[in-house]
Write a protein that binds this DNA or RNA. Structure first.
Lengths: 337, 337
DNA sequence: TTGGATTATGCAATCGATTGCAGAATAGTC
DNA sequence: GACTATTCTGCAATCGATTGCATAATCCAA
């Protein structure tokens, strides 16, 4: 990282002022400079291997061309596609994404966001589902640009991108109902997450609407272990019979797989299970998992798009974008026996 | 991102020079300033909500406290743990990681690395397995700090962190041999990747050593599809019988699962399969996959550590760190019938 | 009390690029 | 040929923090 060529170096060789070099190299301003001069400077810059110093430029222009992306945990397989979606929109536009993992902790999230702001990110994409609404309102009044993904926060005046959680749960229940199931369990994600709330809420509504028996089991996290633990605890209590599980996400569904297995129950013969997200590998589980596909890549793209559009239209309304989801029927659901 | 408080703002309120504020706030230099003054300035800075501008600081100090991490594809499940390992070492030390995906394309990789350097990253962690050795030598002579992860490049004078590929393949073959298998297939990853070469090479050596029949099938990528396609093509050709597959990684092994299934072969009854990496969810496949565990998180940590250590000892030898791997025996391997 | 050391702070340059302003050079018009 | 308009380039300030150097202030010892 030593001996880098600077604008001044190019200027000296070309025998012109650094300002002229700057203008020549910037497509926006090159028309202010004589065509011949531009050609010469471009040539010299290339020969010298000049590359702009983004840091210095950012200081002057007050733009870092960097976006902070806040997610709970990169090892949750729904986030890599989302991040790549973000990237796919940002990169061609000269932006980079700085990714941080909050591990579901509101305090670390605040620390991380502050460090992102010290790094002068131009905006934030926030994909952590939990709390921190006050913090976000505060950011908004301070003029911080942001977009929320995969979370709803009614009070927060930022654009939001989500999958259609309600429609997903409805489709899941309708599918199970068509198979003849009447006794349902909803393995709900942690209740501080907005997606958990919506999914659980829709579950209740739909059960009522279709005249089904629905029971909600709460978990402590969106993880295999949390799903298994909650389900174990439930099954150990000799519950009233049920034949269908609608899980808050695929990891919880997978936890349910494990629990059912250790309790001698077969999926789908004894119990049908539906996941949520259609994360990678759900098709390779045993049995292949029926789940709700959520377009995480597209959500990332959309979030990035909404964020960058804020930079242009100063006063943009806090749009809500809901992307369509679809039920992927595989082999974890079957006719009620 | 507006109206940020600057050093000068704090200085004005405190009635001192910006330099004094800078020195007061930096633990390294605060002893140059009167204790009482430090206390006062610290207090005012806190009241005003001053946060340093990392960009400006980076311009002056020529350190961005940012590390570029180059991986093939974040959606390959081995990389999130690696990235988190990197992060876990960097974050407490004030560094951030800027992650880019090359998608296995050497040209995009070059473009991305250049953009990382324009952003003045202090160093690179490179986890892409393929080619580009000339580029890397060039970087080295230009004084770019870097560490290679998950790839061996004998000619490249950078520290390297890898799993013990050879030992992993040996353990896999010994396990299969102990189960009575004598006819082997190695589903090898793309041959421009260094890990592919080592794994394939060890496979050949070990087969010879143990008097086994080994055949290598090449694939075009480390993906489920590539594994399935290669295996399909092979099986369609009515090959000489075999009972064991050692796959180049878990994704290829999963591709083999699919192919075997569509060809009416059962794993493990007809064919035993071993993967490589022990990526997330391998335990939930059908059958649960026997595979070689590779400590990706630790590899990330180690890579970050080696990189930062270069910043201190100016002339560090290109260390090679090999982390131990272990065979995880599950249900995709069985006694030869 | 004086001189030398020490401490504390200010001054100003610097990092590398951008950009408003001004002035020089050239072109264009009547 | 004089005058305005246009084009081109240089100058210098600026972004925000850091840091070598200088100087003022204080201290201590003889």
């Amino acid at each position: 990282m030593r001996n880098r060529v600077t604008l001044a170096d190019v200027a000296k060789i070309a025998g012109v002022n650094p300002g002229t070099v700057s203008r020549s190299l910037n497509p926006q301003t090159e028309n202010q400079v004589n065509k011949e001069t531009v050609r010469k400077i471009r040539k010299i810059a290339k020969e010298l291997g000049y590359t702009p110093n983004t840091v210095a430029r950012g200081l002057r222009t007050r733009k870092s061309l960097t976006i902070g992306v806040v997610i709970p945990d990169l090892t949750n397989p729904i986030f890599p596609p989302l991040v790549r979606g973000v990237d796919s929109y940002l990169l061609p536009r000269g932006y980079s994404a700085l990714i941080v993992n909050s591990d579901g902790n509101v305090d670390t999230e605040l620390v991380l966001i502050n460090s992102l702001m010290e790094r002068q990110v131009d905006g934030l994409i926030i994909a952590t589902g939990h709390g921190g609404d006050e913090m976000l309102k505060d950011f908004h009044t301070r003029g911080v640009y942001a977009v929320m993904v995969n979370r709803e926060s009614p009070g927060v005046p930022y654009p939001t991108v989500t999958g259609d959680d309600g429609a997903g749960i409805s489709a899941a229940i309708e599918h199970l109902a068509a198979l003849g199931h009447t006794e349902y369990i909803h393995l709900a994600g942690p209740s501080d997450s907005s997606t958990s709330k919506i999914r659980a809420h829709t579950f209740t509504i739909e059960c009522k609407r279709l005249g089904l028996n629905g029971k909600i089991i709460k978990t402590t996290a969106y993880s295999i272990e949390a799903g298994q633990t909650a389900m174990d605890k439930f099954l150990d209590h000799k519950p009233s019979p049920f034949t269908a599980i609608v899980a808050g996400n695929d990891l919880l569904a997978l936890g349910a797989y494990h629990s059912l297995r250790t309790h001698g129950l077969n999926c789908p013969d004894d119990v049908s299970v539906i996941g949520f997200n259609n994360m990678p590998f759900t098709n390779d589980f045993q049995p292949p998992m029926t789940t709700v596909n959520v377009p995480h890549f597209d959500m990332g793209v959309e979030a990035a798009r909404l964020l960058l559009s804020q930079f242009e239209d100063e006063e943009s309304a806090p749009v809500k974008v809901t992307l369509p989801v679809s039920l992927i029927i595989r082999e974890s659901t079957a006719l009620k026996k």
